[in-house]
Design a protein around this nucleic acid. Structure first.
Length: 253
DNA sequence: TCATTAATCGCAC
DNA sequence: GTGCGATTAATGA
């Protein structure tokens, strides 16, 4: 009755919702834009009509070409955002962790998603309808400003990624990818705290799976990384950074 | 455990 | 650098 009383707007299919279907007020996720500004709109429709969505690992929750009705925030878990290229090859646009926004480029004038999104592990998402969010943005400059900062960052990163892909060698692109993953997800017990396939590294770096494998095994020999199956660990972040910054392409983002 | 799936390597282009 | 196929390792039901 207290904070399980959400739902009944968008999802017609009955999903099991146990915990995590929590109100924004009680939310623990302080990275979240909504949470950080929640005081301003305590009982607005934005928070009361929020939906929670549970995604299993590998589950796609945004389909390319689907109409945009709202935005997703990650409450818990990790997600990849990608675009399908010409020959069916995927290009991973970015990764996202708890507190980040998914599907924001579709916000505003665009009617359909130009990207797809998939959970990399079991995740919980918050879904806000476009209308409610628009209303909240109109009323809360602080929220709007925070969102703008987020957009600015994303734009900056995506611009530097263009440079990365067009001007760096494969080895450098793979290193750049590793550093990005490291910045984004951090590490745990010496390994990057996310489980990605070689193919996914390749899709982000803009190469093929084989190239990633080759670069990985070279880096292993040079004692720059360690690899145990899917788990990748960076031994010496600074040396990897140096290798890229020599070429002046490294941008912290 | 066994079957499926991913990682790796070698080789041709 | 890229792409294919065979071999080997890892994962999960």
């Amino acid at each position: 009755m207290l904070h399980t009383a959400t739902v009944n707007t968008i999802t017609s299919s009955t999903r099991k919702r146990i915990s995590y279907d929590v109100s924004c007020m009680a939310c623990e996720n302080h990275n979240c834009l909504i949470k950080r500004n929640v005081g301003a709109f305590e009982n607005s429709k934005l928070t009361t009509e929020k939906n929670n969505l549970r995604c299993k690992k590998g589950q796609q929750f945004i389909m390319e070409g689907a109409p945009v009705n709202g935005l997703f925030f990650i409450l818990k878990g990790k997600v990849k955002v990608y675009r399908t290229g010409i020959n069916g090859r995927e290009q991973i646009v970015r990764f996202a962790r708890a507190g980040e926004i998914i599907g924001h480029r579709g916000f505003g004038t665009e009617e359909y998603y130009s990207i797809g999104a998939m959970a990399l592990e079991d995740s919980v998402l918050c879904y806000f309808s476009k209308d409610n969010l628009q209303e909240a943005l109109m009323d809360n400059p602080k929220l709007t400003y925070d969102l703008m900062l987020f957009y600015a960052n994303e734009l900056n990163r995506s611009e530097s990624k263009v440079k990365t892909i067009s001007q760096m060698t494969v080895r450098e692109r793979v290193i750049d990818t590793l550093l990005y993953i490291n910045r984004k997800f951090g590490e745990n017990k010496g390994f990057l705290d996310v489980s990605l396939s070689r193919r996914e590294y390749a899709e982000y770096a803009g190469t093929t799976e084989e190239q990633v494998i080759r670069v990985f095994s070279v880096l292993k020999k040079e004692n720059l990384i360690v690899a145990k199956g899917k788990k990748i660990g960076i031994v010496d972040v600074q040396r990897l950074k140096n290798e890229i910054s020599e070429h002046n392409f490294y941008l912290d983002s």
